[in-house]
């Protein structure tokens, strides 16, 4: 009698906890699956628009992210769940993904800013030194932040996640500041790629730092926030993919009559000295 009563209570509690957990579970799965479906859409749409030729490394990054998602999803569906294989796969793929993301940032710099020799002269060493400084800061702060857990794989993942986020934020902010300082305009799609990465990298940096500070209790909240940031990032890519290319807006425009008069006067004053 008591055992039956206890089972009823247990079942009731389980049902109650499931009711409370269900929205969170749905949110977690939604934020894991939906951005990758949208990423698949982005891949197809960008292939149709020939972006794989203009930004091949970005295309490879998006393809790898999709592959990573499919691998992890397949592993998570296995029974019993192979926790260690899952974790090490996650670490390995995060490492590859971070390298690809850095390569995409260089690709953005190349396609957007390095076409002119004068920009290349300044930007190449600027990016090189920014990367060196960021690597150093990442190494020092990773050591300072080390909220070492008992699991080696978790520690490696945290260091990798934090360091790559820091480097990405630093490089992207440098690129944005460079373009702003020189008033160089970016093409729409490349701006979209940079903006998407920028949003995602900044949120990742903030959350990985918080995860190190708050410890295990913050893991789920951090995961959800990072997945939401990636969702926003993919949405930004998609929106920019469908926006008309801004380069066309300039077409046909040029020096106006007032501009020509102004510069003509400037030249006459210079030569009239």
């Amino acid at each position: 009698m008591f055992a039956t009563r206890k089972r009823e209570i247990d079942c009731g509690l389980l049902a109650k906890s499931l009711i409370f957990q269900w929205p969170m579970l749905f949110l977690q799965y939604y934020l894991w699956i939906a951005p990758h479906l949208l990423l698949g859409w982005t891949l197809v749409a960008s292939f149709r628009r020939g972006m794989h030729r203009r930004l091949p490394i970005f295309f490879a990054y998006a393809a790898f992210e999709t592959f990573q998602f499919l691998t992890l999803l397949a592993l998570s569906l296995l029974s019993p769940f192979p926790r260690d294989i899952y974790n090490w796969t996650l670490v390995l793929e995060t490492g590859i993904s971070s390298c690809l993301m850095l390569a995409v940032i260089y690709e953005l710099a190349n396609t957007l800013l390095l076409t002119q020799s004068s920009r290349a002269e300044l930007l190449r060493p600027l990016l090189r030194w920014t990367l060196v400084v960021l690597m150093f800061v990442a190494a020092v702060s990773s050591a300072a932040l080390s909220g070492a857990t008992v699991r080696r794989v978790t520690n490696i993942f945290q260091v990798l996640d934090f360091s790559s986020s820091l480097v990405e934020v630093g490089m992207l902010v440098t690129l944005f500041l460079f373009s702003r300082t020189l008033h160089i305009s970016w093409r729409n799609r490349a701006t979209g790629v940079a903006l998407g990465f920028g949003i995602s990298a900044c949120i990742n940096l903030a959350t990985t730092a918080l995860r190190s500070g708050l410890g295990k209790s913050a893991f789920i909240a951090v995961d959800i926030t990072q997945m939401a940031a990636f969702h926003v990032c993919v949405l930004v890519w998609l929106v920019y993919l469908y926006l008309p290319n801004r380069a066309l807006a300039f077409a046909g425009s040029g020096l106006g009559k007032s501009d020509i008069q102004f510069w003509d006067q400037e030249l006459q004053r210079i030569t009239g000295r």
């Binding site: 820091l166 934020v169 944005f176 500041l177 900044c202 949120i203 807006a249």
Partner: peptide, 30 residues
């Protein structure tokens, strides 16, 4: 240290959004 990085990350985000917005507002307005 985590707080410093959280603040830096949000400042970076605001800066990126501001510059990206600037790209749009000046586009084509010759």
């Amino acid at each position: 240290i985590p707080t410093i990085f959280v603040v830096l990350a949000f400042l970076g985000l605001l800066l990126i959004l501001y510059i990206a917005k600037g790209h749009h507002s000046t586009a084509g307005n010759l």
